[in-house]
Design a protein around this nucleic acid. Structure first.
Lengths: 149, 149
DNA sequence: GTCCACCTTCCCACCGTGGGAAGGTCAAGC
DNA sequence: GCTTGACCTTCCCACGGTGGGAAGGTGGAC
C-alpha cells in the first residue's frame, strides 16, 4: 500500500504519512477494519516504520474512503474488490462498473422486497392483536399454526 | 424436549416419535439447525434412543415449526426465545407479544429505509453512467470522492 | 525516567447457516 | 449371518463484517 520502507515514525510524519489511527479518522474506516482489509488482501500491505507501525499516505486513505463509501452503499467485500480493481484500471469499460452496480441494485431490491413481505405480514398480525392483558393472541396463533391450521 | 428415555429406535417409532431428519422434514428446519437450537438452549434437549439418536414428538415438531415461521418473519433468535416463552406461558398478556412484534416491525422499517436509501443513491449513479466502453464513470467518481470533492 | 496513549499480534464473540470429516447404527437384501 | 448404503452422532471450519480485549512493545511529552 504505502510502499515505504522502514522510516522512524517521526520521519514518516514529516514525509506526510499517517499512522493507522489517523488514517482511520481520515477515512472513516476503523483501525481494526483497516488491519482486517489488509489481512484479507482487499488492500495491499501497508508500509511500516522500523518499529513495525503501519504508515499510510493520502492515496491509501483515499482507497480506504472508497471502501467506506462502497460499504455505505451496501456492496459486499467481494464486490468492493471488483470495484477497486476497476477503479484502478484506467482502461476499464464503464459498462463493467455499471453492470456491477446494477447487479447490486437488483440484490437490494430483492432484499427490500423480502423485508417488506415480512413487514406486511407482521403489520397484519399486530393489527389483529388486541394487545391487552388477556392471553389470547393472533400473533402467536399465526406463528404456531400458519400454513396448516 | 421429548422427555423420553432410552428407546430402541424401532420402539420409538411405534410410539410416534420422529428421528431428526423426519422432524426436519416436517418442520422445515434443517437437522443441522435443530441441533444448533438445542445446543444454544432455544429448545430443550431432545430425548434419545439407547443408541443416542435424537427423537421428537409432534409437539416438538410444532415448536420447531413455530421457530421456522418466526425466522421467516425476520425475528432474531433472541426474539424467538421471547416469543416461545410467551407462547408457552398460558398466562401471558397479549400486549407483551404485540410489543415484541411492534418493536420488530420498527426494526424492519429502519432496515428497509436504510436499504432504500442505498438503492436511491445507487439508482442515481447507475442512471448517470453511460455504461459503454469508455473508462470514465460517475459511479467510481462518486465512490472515490463523495463528501469532499 | 516515568507515564500514558498508541501500536502490534492474537484470540474470541456475535448471528445464522452450511460443509465436511470421522466414527457408530439401522434396516434391507442376500 | 454379513455387506451395503443411508442415516445418525460429534467435532471443527467457513462465510460477512465488526467489535472487544489481553499481552507486550513504542512514541513523545514532561
Amino acid at each position: 500500500m504505502a510502499q515505504a520502507k522502514y522510516f522512524e515514525l517521526s520521519d514518516a510524519r514529516r514525509e506526510g504519512f499517517f499512522n493507522i489511527s489517523e488514517a482511520a479518522e481520515a477515512s472513516g474506516v476503523s483501525a481494526k477494519m483497516i488491519r482486517h482489509y489488509e489481512e484479507t488482501g482487499l488492500v495491499p500491505k501497508a508500509g511500516r516504520t522500523v518499529a513495525g507501525y503501519r504508515i499510510y499516505r493520502d492515496a491509501d486513505v483515499h482507497v480506504l474512503r472508497f471502501i467506506r463509501r462502497s460499504r455505505d452503499l451496501g456492496f459486499t467485500m467481494k464486490e468492493i474488490g471488483g470495484l477497486l480493481g476497476l477503479w484502478q484500471d484506467k482502461r476499464r469499460a464503464s459498462a463493467d462498473v455499471k453492470k456491477l452496480a446494477a447487479k447490486h441494485m437488483a440484490d437490494l431490491d430483492a432484499r427490500i422486497a423480502e423485508l417488506q413481505g415480512m413487514r406486511r405480514t407482521l403489520e397484519h398480525l399486530v393489527h389483529c392483536c388486541h394487545g391487552d392483558g388477556r392471553p389470547d393472541c393472533p400473533i402467536l396463533d399465526d406463528l404456531a399454526g400458519a400454513g396448516r391450521a
